[in-house]
Computed example of a mutant assay.
Amino acid sequence: MGLPSDVHPTVEDPRVEHARYWRFPGLPGTELLTARFVTTSFVRHTHPTYTIGVITDGIEEYTHPGGRARVGPGGLAVVGPGEVHTGHAGIPEGWGYRVFYPSREVVEGIARERGIRGTPAFTESGIHAPEVARILVDAHLAADHGDPLTASALTRQGLGLLLRTHGREPAADPAPHAARPEVERARRILEARLLDPPTLEELSAEVGLGPFALTRAFRGVHGLPPHAYVNQVRVDRARALLRAGRPPGEVAALVGFADQPHLTRHFKRHLGVPPGAYQRALLAS
Rank of each mutant, 00 (worst) to 15 (best):
G109P: 08
L154G: 05
P181D: 09
A143F: 06
R164Y: 10
P198Q: 01
E108F: 03
V183E: 12
L136G: 07
L149D: 15
H128V: 15
S152C: 05
D173L: 15
P170C: 05
L195A: 09
V137Y: 05
A192G: 11
P174L: 15
E108A: 14
L162K: 07
P176K: 03
A111Y: 01
P174C: 11
G126P: 02
V132P: 07
L149W: 13
G118L: 08
D138N: 14
T215N: 12
A178V: 14
A175N: 11
P170Q: 02
T150S: 15
L214Q: 12
T165P: 07
G167F: 00
A217Y: 11
A142K: 04
L163A: 10
P120R: 00
G158V: 03
H177W: 06
G126S: 01
T155L: 10
D196M: 06
V132C: 09
R185H: 07
A111F: 01
V107D: 02
R114D: 08
H177Q: 13
P176Q: 05
H177D: 11
T123Q: 14
G210E: 15
I189C: 00
T199W: 05
L141K: 10
P211W: 06
L203T: 01
L209E: 05
A175I: 14
V207N: 08
L154K: 01
A151Q: 12
A192P: 04
L162V: 08
A172G: 11
E113M: 12
A143M: 08
S152D: 09
R216P: 00
P197S: 01
A129F: 03
R117Q: 15
T123M: 11
